[in-house]
């Protein structure tokens, strides 16, 4: 009986153990002292989705030259990496495809490499996941706003940003938008720039957009802000 119990419990426990053990990291052949972002930070994707571009990191040695064969580990709460650990290639770079978690909002991605003398060097990137409301807001932005509020042109849409004076604020301009309350943003969008003493070249959209669309747009603007927008009020730990 005791033997049976022992067998049973070990049978129950074993899969649990195997599930928690992570794949073995590749063994590094070299060590750097510093890690830096090459590309892939500040991207935007829908919740639970892969970022459009992979994250590329570079490991540098004491002489400032790239180091090949250094171990780079990626981590982030709720974020999937493929691969989660990689050795830097001949040009000192390690690349990972990133899939964001299922909650809308900002994700911090940490890329870390062990240093030769012990300890490790790390760099943190910010990525943004859009939930339903922000996606709706991004559709409003794509149709009405980004012709003026985005300074990048595409073949389908030529930016009007440079033609305007005063220049509109890019939605990534957190320093400006984070100081404007939701109520004031709503006013500017619904009643036009003059409602808050700003340029009349910002037209009133209150009779064009539905209140829910304006709310969604504000939520999108908040998601795009850099530095990130902080909701007013007391902050609590998770």
């Amino acid at each position: 009986m005791r033997l049976q119990l022992a067998l049973l419990s070990s049978a129950l426990l074993l899969p649990g153990c195997s599930r928690s053990s992570a794949p073995k990291p590749p063994a590094p052949t070299a060590y750097g002292i510093q890690i830096a972002e090459v590309s892939g930070g500040k991207q935007v994707a829908a919740v639970g989705s892969a970022l459009p571009q992979p994250v590329v990191m570079q490991v540098n040695g004491a002489d400032g030259n790239p180091v090949a064969g250094a171990l780079v580990s990626f981590r982030g709460e709720g974020v999937d990496f493929n691969p989660a650990q990689a050795l830097s290639d001949a040009s000192g770079q390690a690349t990972a495809a990133v899939r964001l978690g299922s909650a809308p909002g900002d994700y911090q991605i940490v890329a870390e490499t062990p240093k030769s003398g012990g300890g490790s060097a790390a760099v943190t990137l910010r990525e943004t996941a859009l939930g339903y409301e922000q996606k709706l807001g991004s559709e409003v932005n794509d149709k009405y706003c980004n012709r003026c509020h985005d300074n990048e042109s595409t073949p389908e849409r030529v930016s009007n940003f440079d033609n305007l004076s005063p220049a509109p604020h890019l939605y990534t301009d957190g320093a400006t938008y984070n100081r404007i309350s939701d109520a004031d943003l709503l006013n500017i969008i619904a009643r036009g720039g003059p409602a808050l003493g700003k340029s009349p070249q910002m037209p009133a959209y209150g009779s064009t957009l539905k209140p829910a669309e304006i709310k969604a747009l504000i939520s999108y603007i908040r998601a795009m802000a850099d530095p990130p927008y902080q909701t007013p009020g007391v902050k609590y730990g998770k």
Binding site: C148, N160, P200, Q201, M202, P203
Partner: peptide, 9 residues
């Protein structure tokens, strides 16, 4: 030109 800033677009 002034009130509605139509020249923006």
């Amino acid at each position: 030109y002034s009130k509605y800033g139509c020249q923006a677009c």
